[in-house]
C-alpha cells in the first residue's frame, strides 16, 4: 500500500523539527493569551457559586489540568503503540516527551483537587474514592514509564519495553472518565457532559472552556519543545543536526 507523502514527512525528524520551530511561537502565544484571559475571567468576572461561594473557582483549573493529564496519557500510548508496531523512532520520541508533562499536570490535578476537597468535603484526601485512586494510578503510570526507561542503557530497548507499559496502561483512562458514573463516589459527577447539557450557566461556562483550550495549547507547546530536544538528542551525530548547530552560530 502506498502511503501519502505527509505520512512519510511526519516520520522524518528534520521535517518535524522545523515544523515545530515554526508552529511553536504561535501555539505558545495562543496558549498564554487564553490562559491569561480565562484566568482573569475565572477569578474576577465569573459570579460566585450559590452553594460553594468563592472556593468553587478551583473548577477553572482542576478539571482542565486533569483533562490534560489524561489526554497526555492517550497521546503517549498512541505514539508508543505506533512506534512499537511500525518501528518509527520519532513516535517513541513523542511518547518520551509526553511523559514528564503528563505527570506534572496529573500531579497538579491531584493537588488542586485535594485543596478543593478540604473546604467542600472536609478532607484533603479520601482513600478508596475511585476517581482519586485511578487518577493517582495515572501519575504512577507516567512515573513508572519514565523509571522503566531509565533502567535500560540501550535506547531502542527502552523504547520497545516502555511502549508495552504505556499501551497496557491506557485502560486506566476510560476508568478515570467513567469512575464518577460507575461508582457512587465523593467526587462530584461530570459538569460539561452532564445529562441534559452542561450543568453551568454561560457566565461560568465560557471561562471554563477558555481554560480548557488554554491548557491544551500550553501542553502542545511544551510537548513540541521537549520533542525538539529529544530529536536533537537522538540524532546528535547526523548531518542535518550538525549543520543546524553550526548554522546557529556555535
Amino acid at each position: 500500500m502506498r502511503l501519502p507523502r505527509w505520512f512519510h514527512l511526519l516520520g522524518s525528524p528534520p521535517f518535524v523539527y522545523r515544523l515545530a520551530s515554526k508552529l511553536n511561537p504561535w501555539i505558545c502565544g495562543v496558549g498564554c493569551l487564553l490562559l491569561a484571559v480565562g484566568g482573569y475571567w475565572a477569578l474576577a468576572i465569573a459570579p460566585p457559586d450559590y452553594q460553594q461561594g468563592e472556593v468553587y473557582r478551583i473548577i477553572y483549573i482542576h478539571p482542565q489540568t486533569a483533562y490534560v493529564g489524561t489526554m497526555a496519557y492517550v497521546v503517549m500510548a498512541v505514539a508508543a503503540g505506533i512506534g512499537f508496531v511500525w518501528r518509527i523512532k520519532l513516535a517513541h520520541a513523542v511518547a518520551v516527551s509526553t511523559a514528564p508533562i503528563g505527570a506534572s499536570f496529573t500531579f497538579c490535578a491531584l493537588i488542586t483537587g485535594s485543596i478543593w476537597g478540604r473546604p467542600t468535603w472536609g478532607t484533603f484526601w479520601a482513600w478508596g474514592d475511585p476517581r482519586i485512586m485511578f487518577e493517582t494510578l495515572l501519575l504512577f503510570l507516567f512515573l513508572g514509564y519514565l523509571m522503566l526507561r531509565a533502567a535500560f542503557d540501550d535506547r531502542d530497548k527502552a523504547d520497545r519495553v516502555s511502549a508495552i507499559l504505556a499501551v497496557v496502561g491506557v485502560v486506566n483512562v476510560p476508568i478515570i472518565h467513567y469512575s464518577v458514573i460507575w461508582w457512587n463516589t465523593l467526587h462530584q459527577g461530570p459538569t460539561l457532559f452532564a445529562e441534559g447539557g452542561p450543568a453551568m450557566t454561560n457566565d461560568m461556562l465560557v471561562p471554563f472552556l477558555i481554560m480548557f483550550a488554554g491548557f491544551t495549547f500550553f501542553f502542545y507547546w511544551l510537548l513540541l519543545t521537549r520533542l525538539q530536544a529529544e530529536i536533537v538528542e537522538r540524532e546528535r551525530g547526523s548531518r542535518w543536526i550538525q549543520e543546524l548547530v553550526a548554522g546557529a552560530g556555535a
Binding site: I61, T65, C108, A229
Partner: peptide, 24 residues
Amino acid sequence: YVWTAYGITLLVLVLNVAAARRSH
C-alpha cells in the same frame, strides 16, 4: 484555598517551561 491552588498550578506551568527549554 483558591490562591494556593492557582499558585501551585502557575508554578507547575512555569517549571514545565523551564525544564522543557533547558533540555532543548
